[in-house]
Write a protein that binds this DNA or RNA. Sequence first.
DNA 1: GATGAATGAGAATTCATTCAT
DNA 2: TATGAATGAATTCTCATTCAT
Lengths: 200, 200, 200, 200
Amino acid sequence: MEARPPGRRERTKAQNRKVILDAARRVFAEMGYGAATVRDIIKATPLASGTFYNYFKSKEEVYQAIRDEVALAIRPRLRAARAEATSVETFLSEGFRIFFAFVAANQADFRHLKPDTMRFRVDTPEVLAGFEELRADVEEAIARGLLPAVDADYLMAALVGVGFEMSERMLLRDPPDPEAAAAFATALMLGGIKALPVAG
Amino acid sequence: MEARPPGRRERTKAQNRKVILDAARRVFAEMGYGAATVRDIIKATPLASGTFYNYFKSKEEVYQAIRDEVALAIRPRLRAARAEATSVETFLSEGFRIFFAFVAANQADFRHLKPDTMRFRVDTPEVLAGFEELRADVEEAIARGLLPAVDADYLMAALVGVGFEMSERMLLRDPPDPEAAAAFATALMLGGIKALPVAG
Amino acid sequence: MEARPPGRRERTKAQNRKVILDAARRVFAEMGYGAATVRDIIKATPLASGTFYNYFKSKEEVYQAIRDEVALAIRPRLRAARAEATSVETFLSEGFRIFFAFVAANQADFRHLKPDTMRFRVDTPEVLAGFEELRADVEEAIARGLLPAVDADYLMAALVGVGFEMSERMLLRDPPDPEAAAAFATALMLGGIKALPVAG
Amino acid sequence: MEARPPGRRERTKAQNRKVILDAARRVFAEMGYGAATVRDIIKATPLASGTFYNYFKSKEEVYQAIRDEVALAIRPRLRAARAEATSVETFLSEGFRIFFAFVAANQADFRHLKPDTMRFRVDTPEVLAGFEELRADVEEAIARGLLPAVDADYLMAALVGVGFEMSERMLLRDPPDPEAAAAFATALMLGGIKALPVAG
DNA sequence: GATGAATGAGAATTCATTCAT
DNA sequence: TATGAATGAATTCTCATTCAT
C-alpha cells in the first residue's frame, strides 16, 4: 500500500505460512510424505531456510497443519449434518456427500495413489479425532433410535474405509463425481450390494 | 543363547534374510515405517551393517519385501476362495474370513494404528496388485451372474476400505476375533446397516 | 590464532572456498590425489564437514577447480605470448619461460613426483583444452610462416611432454631455476641436442 | 587333459594371475586407476573375491604388476639398444623405435587419454627406474663421447616427455604408425623443429 | 522477521579383507 | 587353493537446525 524499498518482498506473516503450507502440499503430493524433507519444502518456496522455523518446527508439524486444516474444516460440517439427520438415509447420505465433495474440492490433499508406486497414507491425531467423532455420532444415533444397536466401532471403521478408499478411486476419474460416489456409498451402506445402483 | 564353537559359520543366507526381515518387522511396528532407519534395522539384528546390503538396497526394499511376502501369501488364497464362490454370500464371507484371519495371525505386519500418534499406511505395488485382482474378481463375479452389474471399481475400493480399517480396529480388541469381524463386514456388505447383527 | 568475539561471522563465502582449495592443495601434495579423501581435505580445514558440500560435490570437483584455476591463469598468458611471437625462437622461448616460471611460482600444484613412490598425474578437461590451444597456435604459426609445415599434433605433444616432465625435474632442484629450464627446452626444440648448452 | 568332475574349472595358478591382470587392465582403462576398486577388478573376473588375495595384496600391487611387466619387458631392450648405439642418431632413433613400437603393440596399457575427461597417468617405481636408466645411459653416452656434455637429467626428462605424450597422440591415430612417430621424435631431438620432416 | 551459510550429528553406503567351508 | 558371505571401519553425504547479519 505504501512505497517500499525496491527488492523488499511484500509478505505478511500469514502469507508466508500459506506459502509454506502450499509448497508442502505440492512436495508431499510429488514425493510422498516419507521421502520429503524440510529442505525440499523450503526449496519449493521463495523463502530462506531459517524462515521455515519461524512458522513450523518440523516436517511433521507442517503435515499436521495441513491435515488438521483439512480435518478441522470438514469435521464440524460432518458433525452438524449427522446431528441434524432424521433417518439412517440422511445420516449416511449427507455425510458421504459432504465428504466426497470436500475431497473433490481439495484434491491435492487427498491424492496419495500413484499407479505402480507405493502409496502412502498418513493420518494425524486430528484426523483420528474425526474418526472418534464419527463413532460418537454413530453411538448417539443409536441412542436416538436412528440406527440399530450395532457395533459402533466397526461401523465407524467401515464408513471411514469406504470413504477414504472410494475417494481415491473417485479422484482417478475424469471428472470426479462426488455425487455419484456418495450415492454409491450410501446405497451400499444402507442396503448392501443388492441395493447398489446398476452401472450403465 | 548357547555357547558355540568359535568360528562356526552358523547362519545361512536364507536365514540371514529372514533375520533382517524379522528385525525390520519389529522396528517398523515399534517406531513406524517413516521414522525407522536402516541403522535401526541393523541394530535390531546380530549382523554387521554391511551384511544388510548383501540382501537389500534400502529400507524401502525391505519394506516391499515384507509387504510383498504378505501380499503374495494371501492373494492366492483370496483368489481361490472368490473363484469357488457360488453366491454373493460366500464371495464376501470367505474373502473377509480369510483376510481377517490372516491379519490376526500376522498382527505385526498390520498394526499401524497407535493411539494419539500419526498413523502410517504404505501400500506397495504388490499390495496394489491385490486390489486389482479383487476388482477383476468382482468383474468376473458380475459376469458369472453372482453379483449385479455394479461399479466394480468402487465396490473393490469399498471392500478394501472396510477390510483394512476394520482390521485395525480388530487388532485393538483383546482378543481379536476375526470370525466376528468377518461376520460384521459380510453382513454389512450384503444387506447394509439394517442387516447388521445387533451388538450384545 | 587470536581470540575472537564469540559468534562473530568471520569468514566470507569466497574465503571459505579458498580455504578449502588451499587445504586440498596441501593434502594432494602430501598424500597424492589418489589417496586423498574428502575427509582428509576437511580435516585440513577449520570448517565443518557439511560446509565442504556447500562448495564442492566431491574430491574430483575440488581437483578440477584447482587445475582449472591454474590452467585458466596460465593459458591466456601463453596464448598472448605465442600470438605476439615474431620468430620460432620467441614462440618457443617465451612459452617455456612463462610455463616454467609459473610452475616454480605454484610448486604445490605441480609437484607430483616423489622418489620411490608412484607418481600421479591427472589432467582435467581444462588442462587438455590448453593442449588444444597450443596445437591451434602451432597451426597458426605454421600459417604465419613462423614454423615449417610440421605435424602440429605431434609437435604440440612434444612441447607438452618436455614442459611437464622437465618441470618436475626442475622442482626437484634447489633452487628451481625456471630461466635455465626454459633455455634448455628452447635450445633443444630449436636446434636439437647438438644445440644444447654444455653443462658446467 | 584328463577327465574332471563337471563344473570344475581348469585354471592353473599362472592362468588365474593372468586373468586378474587382464581384468585389471580393462578396468583401469575403463574407469581410470583412481576410481577403480578391487571389487571392480574381481567383478571383471570369473573368480571369487577371496581368490584375488591369493595373488595380490591390493589394487596398487596389481597396478604395479602391470606396469612392471611392461617396464621390465621394455627396459632391457632399450638399454641394449642404447648401449649398442654408435652415434647420437642411433641412440635416439633406436630408442624411440622400440618404445613407440612397444606402445603400439600394448595399446591397452598405455591409453590413458579420453577426450573430455580427466586423464590419469600413474608411474610406478619400476617405471621411474626406467627413467633413471635412461639418465644413466645418457650420462654414459656423454662419457663415451656420443653426446655432448648436456644436462643429463633434463635431457632424460625431455626424452621421456616426448615419448609418453607423443605415444598417446599416436594411439589416437588410425592406424597408429610407430615408425613415423619415431622418425618425428628422432628428428626433433636431433636437429630441432627446423629438422622436422614437413607434413604432406 | 528474514536471510542463507555454517554446523556436525548421524544416516547411508562402500569396500578391503577375513575365514569357514 | 577357491569360494563368497560376513565383517565393520572408513567414507560419503544429508539434513535439521542455529545464528550472525
